[in-house]
Every structure is written in structure tokens, then in C-alpha cells.
Design a protein around this nucleic acid. Sequence first.
DNA 1: TCCATAGTTCGAATATAATCGAACTATGGA
DNA 2: TCCATAGTTCGATTATATTCGAACTATGGA
Lengths: 103, 103
Amino acid sequence: MRQIKHPSIDQIELTDIMYALSDPTRLEIVARLANAGRKMTCGEFDLNRPKSSMSHHFKILRAAGLVETLIEGTEHMNALRVNEIEQKFPGVLQSVLQALHRS
Amino acid sequence: MRQIKHPSIDQIELTDIMYALSDPTRLEIVARLANAGRKMTCGEFDLNRPKSSMSHHFKILRAAGLVETLIEGTEHMNALRVNEIEQKFPGVLQSVLQALHRS
DNA sequence: TCCATAGTTCGAATATAATCGAACTATGGA
DNA sequence: TCCATAGTTCGATTATATTCGAACTATGGA
């Protein structure tokens, strides 16, 4: 059961995080993951976009270190790396999530 | 003494803030403005880039609502809009500045 | 073994951004 | 009025992103 590679905490760059969060689609994905508070498959996000586009956005979220994807069977389970990001950049992700929650 | 237009608080978008902060040069400008704690001219940032490039980055920082520029004589005085951003998106800018301070 | 499902990768088109020199604008001082 | 200074705007080049269909891969179930 081959798994996907993710950056380690010390490889995560603030600019990559900021960039990943500058796209409305990706921000929506992050918001839904945070609200759900559980792992979600790519298909669960019903954002009216083709699979290849969604895959592209997940790739960027993963590369930025925001999202962790575990392969379980035929599904890819995605989770926010809240604790790790919080450890490296305290308050950044939390405050962004709060801002999203208000709007 | 013509002044530059800036977005009002309610026109500021989170995605624009994130985007503006995803570039290393702009992040450096923001960090220096925060550290200085005072208004700075464009020329004070000695980032080894031509004037037109710096002007471009200031334009994006202004459009995002992060920086306010007041024309005083021949100089353009730039300041971070910390209080306003803090009001609209509590913690976002502060935590980013803290992250910059650590690295 | 065959098929459906879930998601990735590829490739090409289009859009957006970064970069920087050159020309321009506005102000203040000589 | 002339000039220097500070910064913007313009225009062209190059680089990077977004988008999406089509082909591909991996897994589990019939």
C-alpha cells in the first residue's frame, strides 16, 4: 500500500503556506477540512471542478505542508496538519481558519 | 498634494492578503516595516532591485490593504495597516510577523 | 480475471505574475 | 526656470499557474 510523500515540519516554508492559502478553491478545501474535523476523501468536496483540477489543488496543499493524504484502499483520505503547522507557525493557520469561519 | 487610494477595511480580502504575503520580497518589506515601527520610504528598503520592481511590489501590498502610502513632498511614506488588518482578521498578520521574527 | 471506483499524471491552451529598462510625473530647492 | 530626487507607469520578455480532457495506476469486489 504505497503512500504519498509529505514535507517534514522543518521543510515547510511560510511563503508556500501563504501561497497555498491565496486561492479561493484551496481556502475552501482547508475550511471544509477544518470544519469537518475528520479525514475526507477528495471526492467529498463537491466544488464543481473536474478531478484533475482538484488533484492539482491537493498537490499544492500537500507540497505546502498543509494537508496530509493517507491512501486507504482506493480512497485518499485528507487531513489538515493543524498541530504541526501550529507548532512551526503558531497562530497562523488558526487565525486564518477563524477568519474563514466569520465570513 | 495628491494622495494614493487605498482599499477600505471592508474591501480587504483574505485571499489578497495571503497572496501578497506569498512573495519573499514582499514578506521582507512587511517584516522591515513591522520591525521599524515607523513610516519608511520605498528607497529605504535596500533590496537590490530596480525601482520599477519595488514599485510593483508596493502596489500589490497596497492593493491587498497591507500597506498605506502617504505622499510627503517627493517621498512616499509607507506604513503597515496593522490595526485595521488586526480588526478585520484578528491574529493573521500578527502571527505571520511573529513567524518572520523567529526565522 | 474483469470491471468499477478514486485519484494522479500528462499535455496543451490560456491566464496571470515577475522582472526591468526607459520614459514619465510631481515635488522642492537652487 | 532649471535641475535633482522619489517614485510610478509603460511595454516587452520571461516565468509560473490554472484549467481541463484524456490516458493512466492502484485497489477492491464480483
